[in-house]
Every structure is written in structure tokens, then in C-alpha cells.
Design a protein around this nucleic acid. Structure first.
Lengths: 153, 153
DNA sequence: GCAGAATACATAGCTACCTATATATGTCAA
DNA sequence: TTGACATATATAGGTAGCTATGTATTCTGC
């Protein structure tokens, strides 16, 4: 009946999800910071590398965060020399975001850090188990997205 | 080849975990706020109800957050009249945290909000699927905790 | 061709985490 | 019994998200 490892009885999956998320972020924080990056920036960096210059709105949609969250993230990234915002010739409201050379050069190392942490998170998982986890998690996120969308009516 | 629902190709489980966590928090945010509570407070509230007055350090351990995170959370909870800090007669460094009557009265409704959101998140899951998810997630969190502990040597 | 709706972004202010570091108290061993 | 270490909390400053709201531009229907 001891609870040395699990301080709380109920293994609520949402509690574990929150815990996993924070622990993962802590795990990659220091090595990413050494490279000049931060945890939340990776989806932006990867998308910009893959797809070239994008608008803030597109980046927010890709990263699935709200527009002000993306605006602030890009502010920090611009401040840190990872990203440039240049006026969109086709739309005066918008600016196109693109990677700096520095970001482009160091991105592979950052991806390696993320991949290594992901591998650690899934160590001991067979391929069917990984697939099972992906499937169950995507059903959870779909359910949650539906429930949130139902509120926004 | 359209990507209307999933804007990003790779179904990285850690990405989905982050997404699930944020969507869950957004889902319960408004109803909890209406009750005078917030998302991060629930582990504290539940623990204090179950186990009586506890120190800040114990609460941090239970909620699995760092001590300064818990200190700030308790500051906000005290400000909002949910919690009291009284000097620990046995240790002048410490203060014991306890629930106010207001928090105690409204807590059942807050738990109902959380439970309803959890049920939504897991809707369509059979009992074996829920158990599978719990098991896979607890292995992920254990792996991540181990990896983080390995850094702290 | 223009008024109103929609869109793109910015800003303000909040929660909830984190690391690093400081301060006060307790504990224990020489 | 006192000095060194350990423990409990506080503070400073940062990231990353959120809602609500404001402003500038574009689009659209009449």
C-alpha cells in the first residue's frame, strides 16, 4: 500500500498526460536552450523549414495554438534571431515569417534533441504498442477537440 | 492529400500529449472559473480535502510540481480565498495549508466539472482500452521521469 | 463604390509552469 | 555547542499558453 512512486491513487489519464507533457518539456529544455532554441518553437521551426515562409495565422493553425500565443512566440523568436518577419506584398495586414540562416543551421541538432527525448519516452515500447498509443491518443485529442468545438457554438 | 483535420503529418505521441493537455485545460477553464477555481488547483484542493492540512512541500510532491510553482499557486489560492496558511507549531520554517469553507463547499462541483471533461475525453473507449491507455501512459511517464532523474546526477 | 463583415495581427493581463538563487530554521556531529 | 549541512519557503525572471479586445486591411453584397 506504499505510494513511493505514485503519490496519488487514481491513475487519471489526463493527470498523466499533463505530467508527461511537463516532464518532456523539462527534459529537452536545457539542451535546446544551449542551441539557442526553446521547446515551443520546434513546430514553428520545422514547418518553416519544410514549407518556406508562412504567415502567422498559418503557423498558429499548424501548431494548433491561438493567434496571440503564436504572436508572442514569434516575438521571442525574432528577438532571438531565429526568424524574420517581412511584409507580405499580397496583403498589407500580413507579414511572412521565415527562418534565419542561424536557425536553419542549428535546427538539425534541435530535432535530434527532440527525437532522442521521444525515443526515451517510448523506450521499451514495441511497434504495436507505439501504434496503439498513437491511436488511443488521437482518439482522446479528437474527443477533446469535439468537446471544445461544441462549446464554441 | 488534404489536411483539414490534421495539419501536421507525423502523429508524434508527445505532440498529441501536449495538445490533449492544453485542450483539456481549455475545456474546463470557463466552468471552473465560474466556480471560483482554476485548472491547476484541483490536485491541491482534492489532496487537502482528503488528507487535511499539509505543508507546501508535501503539496508540491503530490502535484508533482516544483516548489516555487506550488508557492505561486498557493499565493493565488490564498488571494482568492480558497486556502489558508497557518504557522506550523512544530516547525517555524513551515506553514500548514488548509481549505477554507468556501473551497470545501464548492469543491464537489469542481470535481464534477473535471470528471465530466474526463468522461468526454474518453468517450467511445471500452474498459480494456482505458486500461491500455493508462498502462501505456504510465510507462511513458515512468520513462520520462527516469530520463529526467538521470540528468539530475 | 462603399458600408459592413471578415481577416490578420497586436496588446493587455491572466494562469501555470520552469530554473536559479536567497533566507530562515532545524539537525547533527565533532 | 557551534558550525556545517539540510530543509522549508520566498523571490526574481523566464517560457508558453489562454481570453478579451483593439486596429488596420481586405473582401463582398448591394
Amino acid at each position: 500500500m506504499s505510494t513511493t512512486t505514485a503519490p496519488n491513487a487514481a491513475p487519471n489519464p489526463l493527470r498523466m498526460i499533463g505530467q508527461a507533457n511537463r516532464t518532456f518539456a523539462r527534459l529537452v529544455d536545457a539542451p535546446l536552450r544551449e542551441l539557442g532554441f526553446a521547446f515551443g518553437q520546434l513546430p514553428v521551426l520545422v514547418s518553416l523549414k519544410k514549407r518556406g515562409a508562412l504567415s502567422q495565422a498559418e503557423l498558429a493553425r499548424i501548431a494548433q495554438v491561438e493567434q496571440p500565443s503564436m504572436a508572442q512566440l514569434l516575438n521571442r523568436m525574432e528577438r532571438d534571431g531565429l526568424v524574420r518577419r517581412i511584409a507580405d506584398p499580397a496583403d498589407a495586414r500580413s507579414r511572412l515569417i521565415s527562418l534565419t540562416d542561424q536557425a536553419l543551421q542549428r535546427l538539425p541538432q534541435a530535432k535530434a534533441v527532440m527525437d532522442a527525448a521521444s525515443r526515451k519516452a517510448l523506450s521499451g515500447f514495441s511497434k504495436p504498442e507505439r501504434e496503439q498509443l498513437d491511436e488511443l491518443l488521437s482518439r482522446v485529442t479528437a474527443n477533446l477537440d469535439d468537446a471544445l468545438a461544441a462549446l464554441r457554438d
